[in-house]
Amino acid sequence: MKFLLTVLLSLLPLWAQAVELEERLAPWTLLDQFDQAYTLDNQAQVLLVARSMDAAKLVDAALQGQPKGYLEARHVVFVADIQRMPRLIAKLFAVPAMQAYNYRVMLDRDARIAPRYPAPVDKVLWLQLEDGKLVARHEYATAAELRQALEQVQP
């Protein structure tokens, strides 16, 4: 019984951090792949969160062939959780490879932001925002589904 209580109490902070519908997202600041800071504000309409390399590859595949500034024009922000990646690999290979992308990737190097938005690690989490409040939540498992959803967002 004590063990169960201890487990439940240890999970309580995770539940408290999860964002609910109609809740305002707390602002945060992350660096992108060029070490340029971005702060989440009320202008963002969609927040994409990839909690794994596989999920980030879905975003990349969905954006293939799109012009530079495609996400920014639609007020879409992409956050990639790279905290599991060894820092040396990230610094020497992964982040330089991301600099070839024609879209910004906000890098959550220390898992400060992505855990606020729980989702399966193999899917891309889509958080629909209005004036900083969460109004809808979706998960995408394929690049085709994600691409179709992005095309519905008006620039």
Rank of each mutant, 00 (worst) to 15 (best):
V124C: 05
L125W: 10
E139W: 03
V79G: 01
D60Y: 07
D60S: 12
G69F: 04
A114M: 02
V153K: 02
V76E: 04
V124F: 03
L30A: 04
F93D: 08
Q64P: 00
D108G: 07
F78K: 00
M106E: 11
E145S: 15
Q45L: 13
P86G: 09
D60H: 14
P86L: 08
Y103G: 00
I89C: 00
A80N: 11
P115H: 08
V7P: 00
K57H: 11
Y140A: 11
L21F: 06
F3V: 12
P115V: 12
L63A: 06
D122T: 12
V77D: 04
V7I: 14
Q17K: 09
L150T: 00
M106K: 07
A119V: 09
R109L: 13
L9D: 11
A62K: 01
V49W: 02
A56E: 06
A149K: 07
L71V: 11
L127F: 03
R24G: 02
E151T: 10
V19R: 01
K2V: 13
S52H: 07
Q17Y: 04
G132Y: 06
L4G: 10
R87C: 00
P13R: 04
D108P: 06
L30M: 09
A62L: 01
L47Y: 00
L25F: 09
Y70G: 05
E130S: 14
L12P: 02
I89N: 06
W28H: 12
A144L: 10
H138Q: 14
A149M: 06
D122A: 13
K123T: 10
R116F: 08
Q154H: 10
Q128I: 03
L9K: 05
F78R: 01
G65Y: 04
M53F: 10
T6Q: 13
Q43A: 14
L63K: 01
L125M: 06
Q33A: 13
R147L: 05
T39N: 07
G132E: 07
A16F: 03
R51N: 14
L125P: 05
A56H: 03
K68T: 13
D131Y: 06
W28Y: 15
Q99T: 13
Q99D: 09
D60E: 14
P67W: 03
L25W: 04
Q128V: 09
L4N: 11
P13Q: 06
Q45R: 15
D41R: 02
R51Y: 07
R116Q: 13
R116G: 14
F3D: 14
V153W: 01
N42H: 11
L63Q: 09
F93C: 05
S10A: 15
I113T: 02
A73P: 07
V59Y: 03
F3I: 12
P67L: 03
A94F: 12
L92K: 08
V76G: 00
S10I: 08
P27E: 09
D131M: 10
D54V: 11
P13C: 03
K91R: 12
E130M: 10
L9A: 14
A90D: 12
A26D: 15
K57T: 09
K133A: 14
L129M: 08
A136W: 05
A61Y: 05
K133D: 11
V7R: 05
D32A: 06
A143P: 02
H138W: 07
Q64I: 07
